[in-house]
């Protein structure tokens, strides 16, 4: 296990705005998380804490467990060992805890996963109406505000398949935001997009970061990572190998595997 290397967190002022996170409480806390798929260990003793309003970008080669890790945070995958605590709520078998956590954690998928049988508007109003019991009109007003925010209010009455990939992903972000989450998880949100649409999605994510959202982002967009992240985290073979500021990562990565990965991707 790599407990030693994990300790080398660079607790220096973050690259983006000095110590804007100083004194913030930890909103996500994982401790020794393991995940097995049959005999295959996808996560190996992952310990990570994220402060409120922090932007963490997760890097790592394919199959290193990045998706598995963030999917454990809202229990789309159940972890086999270790603890996960989100905003003070323990993630375990208790269904009430799970419900409370899922209301606080929004997720955006690589494949968008919009509901194709519902209009754009209803994709967004579904959560607030069904989970938060918000009246229909309020939910629709909220949905329109969010569509405004992601820049596509004119698409409200269309169906997902009638939108471009970039527009779909922005709807997916609006859908997650409609639950007023404290934390947003992004699993390679731009990987399924054509290059000209990547920017429109990243712009929305930037705006979201500036608004103070706590974000965990799995991405290969190094420009975004360098510019927006407070902290970068590097996974390999299910282990959290190295973490630190963007500056640390891009200028003086310590681990060989990190160097190799960055040399391939940059």
């Amino acid at each position: 296990m790599t407990t030693e290397t994990e300790a080398t967190t660079a607790e220096q002022p973050s690259a983006n705005g000095a110590d804007r996170l100083a004194g913030q409480p930890d909103i996500i806390m994982t401790e020794g998380v393991d995940k097995w798929f049959g005999d295959f260990q996808a996560l190996d003793d992952v310990t990570l804490s994220v402060k409120e309003h922090e932007i963490v970008v997760i890097l790592g080669p394919s199959g290193s467990g990045k998706s598995t890790f963030i999917r454990c945070l809202n229990r789309l995958e159940e972890h086999d060992a270790g603890r996960i605590v989100i905003d003070g709520i323990e993630l375990n078998e208790d269904v009430r805890n799970l419900r409370a956590i899922r209301e606080e954690v929004g997720m955006v998928f690589q494949q968008f996963n919009l509901f194709p049988h519902l209009s754009v508007l209803n994709n967004i109003t579904l959560g607030p109406q069904k989970v938060r019991r918000m009246p229909k009109l309020d939910a629709e007003q909220l949905a329109m505000e969010l569509l405004e925010r992601v820049g596509i209010p004119e698409q409200a009455d269309k169906y997902p398949t009638q939108l471009s990939g970039g527009q779909q992903q922005r709807v997916a972000i609006a859908r997650a935001l409609a639950m007023r989450p404290k934390i947003m998880l992004f699993d390679e949100p731009t990987s399924a997009l054509d290059p000209e649409m990547i920017k429109e999605v990243l712009d929305v994510m930037r705006e979201l970061a500036e608004s103070g959202m706590t974000m965990l982002v799995v991405t290969h967009e190094m420009g975004f990572a360098r510019e927006v992240a407070d902290r970068l985290v590097f996974f390999d073979e299910g282990q959290l190998i190295e973490q630190g500021t963007p500056q640390h990562f891009f200028e003086s990565p310590r681990e060989e595997r990190t160097k190799l990965f960055l040399s391939q991707i940059l």
Binding site: N74, L76, R99, R102, E103, V105, G106, M107, F109, Q111, N113, L114, F115, L126, G127, K130, V131, A172, R175, A176, A178, M179
Partner: peptide
């Protein structure tokens, strides 16, 4: 991903079945 997206927005298992 359809069921997962339902769960991710906070729908219960039953609600996910029913509406998605």
């Amino acid at each position: 991903g359809q069921g997962e997206a339902g769960h991710a927005v906070g729908l219960s298992h039953l609600q996910t079945l029913q509406v998605i």
